[in-house]
Design a protein around this nucleic acid. Structure first.
Length: 141
RNA sequence: GCUGUAAAAAACACUAUCGCGGCUCCGAAAGGAGAUGAGGAAAGUCCGGACAACACAGAGCACCACACCAUCUAACGGAUGGGCUGCAGUCUGGGAACGGCCUGCAGACAGCAAGUGUCACAGAAAACAGACUUCCGGCCACAAGCCGGUAAAGGUGAAAACGUGCGGUAAGAGCGCACGCGCUGGUAUGGCAACAUAUCUUCGGACAAACCUUGUGGGUUGAAAUGCCAUGUACAUUCUGAGUCCCGCUUGCGGGAGCCGGGCUGCUCGUUCGGUGAGCUUGAAUCGUCAGAAGGGGUAGGCAGAUAGAGCCAUUCAGUGAUGAAUGGCCUAGAUAGAUGAUAGUAUUUCCCUUUUGGGAAAAACAGAAUCCGGCUUAUUUUUUACAGCUAUU
RNA sequence: GCCAAUGUAGCUCAGGGGCAGAGCACUUCCAUGGUAAGGAAGGGGUCAUGGGUUCAAUUCCCAUCAUUGGCU
């Protein structure tokens, strides 16, 4: 099977209410220099198992150039490694919302970002499977 | 060679793989192909417009902005040219006060001769003047003291009531004269004008980035404006009612009464909430707002605004110039949880090592469109040109 | 995106042209067996930054920087 490296609009998290509930009742995973929060989405039918959003805090990077740079690097790394997460979630029926936040204070380089994203996505996949496997009925938070 | 000012140019190119945005083409669809995709400041939001909506007939007051003149411009607080003033430098005129030519830099540059106000400390006195020490006269034998005159000298201060010289006088004083500085009004000449020159005349502290006066301009709100489709408690249409008055000061708020509607209540009283108007007044209007009635009955999406424009490039002409006109060519981001990225290589540039070949490193500084334009301001890398200053060598 | 306000001592704030202040905090001394409270004395300032107006600027004007708030 050929691996799809594309990153289309359906894979991005855009719904305002979903983002709000993600911040109020989402589960967190810290993998320095990232913080990932995730939540199962109810009633969303999609061909993709996750919808992702990327965030960089304005207080740590006041210039828009730096924020755009970091978001593009994270998005590029996610695009090349998302198939690892998709394989881990192949057995899931629900769609998940994920937000990746950058918490370091210094500007990163791509060579350092890529392996960290890969490790973080592998950890996230195992954690989601472990959380939903025992009690599929009351998995809501 | 260095520093400063001004002007101009550039801000990285190509190939491959993977990927993103909108566009065009092919395709029933999935998808595929093609060309294309951040800036000089995209920034600050400091000005000016376009565009849109809304109580814009008109008048007065208030408020805000601007302020030498002319021109440019859609418009401007912007730009260009000119005038005037100040500062610095070279040269120079005069006995002095003070001036002239040239060069460079700077200037929020209408009016204190409309009115009001302020000028600390020091000083005798700080703005219809004024007598501390001097100076002069009188009273007095003289001195001291008292009375009067005087603004020349002293000292204080940021500033002492035009400056120099001569006359004049008891001593003095723009008191008078000549020259000089500033300044009001008139006349003549030159200039579109600001203004300049000559002459007559009035006057002689500063401050309007003090209140203010004069002149000119300004309705308010901003694309999260606004319109359409779908949806439909949120929207628009129709009808009805309210839309009034008083007080206070901190002057744009507060309080009270009345009226309309809702909540509490079976009803009244009462209580509470909302409304009772663009800065104000007058006038016109009854369009905004609030409440009720009628109509429609479950998702917050899509399209337009919104990217061909006061557009860009080249040439010629007009103008000192900003700029304008003509001709020819070009199409050059349009997202909406927000695209423009990653990896590898080549070329180029810079730096380092090396005799060369070659090897290694870096791709930079400021910084990311959000309705669109014209400016201003701020941040910042490199190169070139012109001018000014300094230093060294020939 | 649009619109306002504020920057003064370590902290919270006055002062709005003429020598920069208050409260708390800090230092030293007194007092107490000792500490706190109390009393006395003292130190500490680029008045956010840069220009301008004025004889004189924290104050008036302009620009910049930073912070905070509001509209949605």
């Amino acid at each position: 099977m050929k691996i799809d490296f594309s990153f289309s609009r359906e894979e991005r998290l855009k719904n305002f209410t979903a983002i709000r509930s993600l911040f109020t009742s989402g589960r967190a995973l810290n993998h320095y220099p990232f913080r990932i929060i995730w939540l199962p989405l109810e009633g969303v039918q999609s061909v993709f198992p996750v919808q992702v959003a990327i965030s960089v805090p304005r207080k740590k990077f006041p210039r828009a150039v730096d924020r755009n740079r970091i978001k593009r690097l994270i998005r590029e790394a996610y695009r090349l490694h998302k198939h690892e997460l998709y394989q881990a979630l192949a057995g899931e029926t629900q769609c998940y919302a994920i937000m990746i936040m950058y918490v370091d204070k210094s500007l990163p380089v791509y060579a350092a970002v890529e392996p960290q994203i890969s490790k973080a996505l592998n950890r996230l996949g195992k954690k989601i499977v472990a959380a939903s496997a025992p009690n599929d009925s009351d998995g809501k938070v």
